[in-house]
Nucleic acid binder design. Structure first.
Length: 299
DNA sequence: TAAGATAAGAGGGACAT
DNA sequence: ATGTCAGTCTTATCTTA
């Protein structure tokens, strides 16, 4: 059993099967402005460290001076993180930037739990957000939108499979607003992001939809072939991964539906169908007729 | 009931004006 | 800067097996 320090996912070191990758997120989406209120509205399974709300930033920002990949931080990054920790000890808000930062962090606090994000990702998000504030990008923009964008940026940067829609939904900001902030950050901070790796997406979808290892492996080879044929450019990675999984399911006669996979992947059935069709045609894959198994029950 | 088909609409990138 | 265009994805509805 290995825990990915970057994505916070726990998976088998041998086969890569993801054991748990996210906490229940179907609870109410409520704001809380005090510890008591937070405790009242919190769902079960809340980590105790978060319940001790007064511990604040120090519980969020770890003390190891290394980034999410384990490499030591640069000197400037180190001092930035140090400052973040220090601020938390202060009872007074010194400037508008500090104030903004505190507010942003209370948002981030909630997101962390809902999206099952690791501490190192939180640090990265904080770093990005701080940069954004220094550049004055917060002016005229909502804090939740910007912090969500920073978080999504950190996810993309580390290859953590969280979709823009997910992040936006959990923080209760319109997807397009987060999207706008995200592009702004990319531009202003002079960053380029690698395309989200469909392979990473697959682990998530496969475990969420309860698919077998065999199916997952075959879906992986399908994705590789698709990549080699350059038919994946410009397509939604999640949709591609989902379609590859579905195709693999039909090839292996694994009992599943588009609906299940679509739900797990966070894309629509139509998208899966389109990618599915494209994959099947481009790779010239013959799909056997579905053998109807009389199992009596769905599970 | 699941899968496929089709249409309308949103949002963003590329490109020209 | 602004408008147009092609391509993608989503939502909704209808048909098919």
């Amino acid at each position: 059993m290995v825990t990915d320090g970057v994505t916070g996912e726990r998976f088998c070191g041998g086969c890569g099967f993801v054991i748990t990758e996210r906490v229940d997120n179907s609870g109410p989406d409520l704001r809380a402005f005090s510890k008591e209120e937070y405790d009242d509205k919190a769902r079960t399974g809340m980590p105790t460290s978060l319940a001790v709300h007064d511990m604040g930033l120090a519980t969020i920002i770890g003390h190891e001076n290394s980034d999410s990949t384990g490499k030591p931080l640069s000197a400037s990054m180190k001092s930035t993180i140090k400052r973040l920790r220090t601020w938390d000890g202060r009872s007074q808000v010194h400037s508008s930037i500090d104030k903004n930062f505190r507010q942003a962090f209370s948002e981030l606090d909630r997101l962390k739990d809902k999206l099952a994000i690791s501490d190192s990702l939180i640090e990265k998000t904080a770093y990005i957000y701080r940069k954004a504030l220094e550049k004055g990008l917060a002016k005229g923009r909502s804090i939740p939108g910007l912090i969500a964008a920073a978080l999504y940026l950190a996810c993309r940067d580390t290859g953590t499979p969280r979709t823009l829609s997910e992040v936006a939904r959990q923080i209760n900001v319109k997807r397009k607003d987060v999207s706008r902030c995200y592009r702004l950050l990319l531009q202003e901070l002079d960053l380029t992001m690698p395309v989200l790796d469909p392979v990473r997406c697959m682990s998530r979808i496969a475990s969420e939809a309860g698919l077998s290892e065999k199916v997952k492996r075959q879906a992986l080879t399908i994705l590789e072939d698709a990549n080699n044929m350059e038919i994946t450019a410009g397509k939604d990675p999640m949709g591609l991964a989902a379609a590859a999984l579905y195709l693999s399911c039909t090839m292996n006669n694994e009992d599943t539906t588009q609906k299940v996979i679509a739900l797990a992947a966070g894309v629509t059935e139509v998208t899966i169908r389109n990618r599915y069709k494209g994959l099947k045609e481009s790779l010239n894959i013959q799909v056997p007729n579905k053998i109807k198994l009389n199992l009596g029950t769905n599970f």
